[in-house]
Simulated scan of single mutants.
Amino acid sequence: MDLDSIECVSSSDGIDEDEIHLHHHQSEFSSTKPRNGGTNHNNSTVPSAIAPATSVHELLECPVCTNSMYPPIHQCHNGHTLCSTCKTRVHNRCPTCRQELGDIRCLALEKVAESLELPCKFYSLGCPEIFPYYSKLKHETLCDFRPYTCPYAGSECSVVGDIPFLVAHLRDDHKVDMHTGCTFNHRYVKSNPREVENATWMLTVFHCFGQYFCLHFEAFQIGTAPVYMGFLRFMGDENEARNYSYSLEVGGNGRKLIWEGMPRSVRDSHRKVRDSHDGLIIQRSMALFFSGGDRKELKLRITGRIWKEQQNPDARVSIPNMCS
């Protein structure tokens, strides 16, 4: 959303899914907490690679995409193999000898694959797990060490990495505002509030409780009704996001709207969160009423705070932990 003016004050109080080609994006990752030592080219500590028997694993490496091959594994008349995905990419021509591939399956190599155990493809990001050849695919779709997608919306950003890397990426590449503290006070001004088509997200990153949170604000339409929406996302997994809560408040002319909920993990796309309406939604008529004046200009002030829920072991109840 191309807002004309933004003012921010922060106070300090899946199996069938395509594989992520880790070797193609290695330079985009900074490592998670190290487990077994070792160093990558980003000068970040990563676990040493788990080294399987190279001869067999080299046989299972597709010469085109260099990923491990899964059935159906194809071969040409000369015995050169490649994965089924790349078979269509090379227009049915062997990438090694250029002979026509045909429809020959390499059943022997498929049988060999069934007997192997392999490390998770995210081992360089910290995952220590080893799985039977076919089981690791299911694990990798849910692996806690799998990289996150850039949470910046309104663009087709395909950058992936761990949280520290993405925070730096948001700051340096997307020029996102960074704030320290668990309270916020945003003022949104837009001269033509009727423009909601092709709106992009406004994003601010907050750092508190040793974690990072993304505050989003967007204009879109529910049916034919234009609305504004604000919500918070947690830069981490869903199970960690449940440890936090937040509130948003907007008002004017003696009225106000208040939203309170839990932040959604950035594992959920911004569109998924938006379409679930899980946040503070302001109808345009109400937003203009809050703005005052002649109702031709949007002037919204949204305040909010983030807190951590702490368990009281004696009372067995949740006690909000406010940052100062």
Rank of each mutant, 00 (worst) to 15 (best):
I6P: 04
C8K: 12
D13I: 13
I15W: 15
D16A: 14
D18L: 09
Q26H: 11
S27C: 12
K33F: 14
K33C: 09
N40H: 09
V46P: 03
P47E: 01
I50V: 14
T66P: 06
Y70D: 02
L82K: 08
S84G: 10
S84F: 08
N92E: 11
C94Q: 02
C97L: 07
L101C: 07
C106G: 08
K111E: 13
A113S: 08
E129D: 07
E129K: 04
F131W: 06
T141I: 11
L142P: 00
D144A: 15
P147I: 05
P147K: 03
P147R: 01
T149A: 05
C150T: 01
V160F: 05
P164Y: 03
F165Q: 10
A168H: 08
D172G: 02
H179T: 07
T180D: 09
G181S: 01
G181Y: 03
Y188I: 02
Y188A: 01
E195N: 11
N198Q: 06
T204V: 11
C208T: 00
G210H: 00
G210E: 04
Q211A: 01
Y212P: 03
L215D: 05
L215I: 02
F220Q: 03
F220W: 01
F231P: 01
L232K: 02
D237R: 13
E240I: 09
R242H: 11
S247T: 15
N253V: 12
K256T: 10
W259S: 04
E260D: 14
D268C: 11
K272R: 14
D275C: 11
L280W: 00
S285Q: 15
F290Q: 01
S291E: 03
G292S: 12
D294W: 00
R295I: 07
R295N: 14
K296D: 10
L298Q: 05
I302R: 02
I302F: 03
G304D: 03
I306Q: 03
K308F: 03
E309H: 04
D314W: 09
M322I: 12
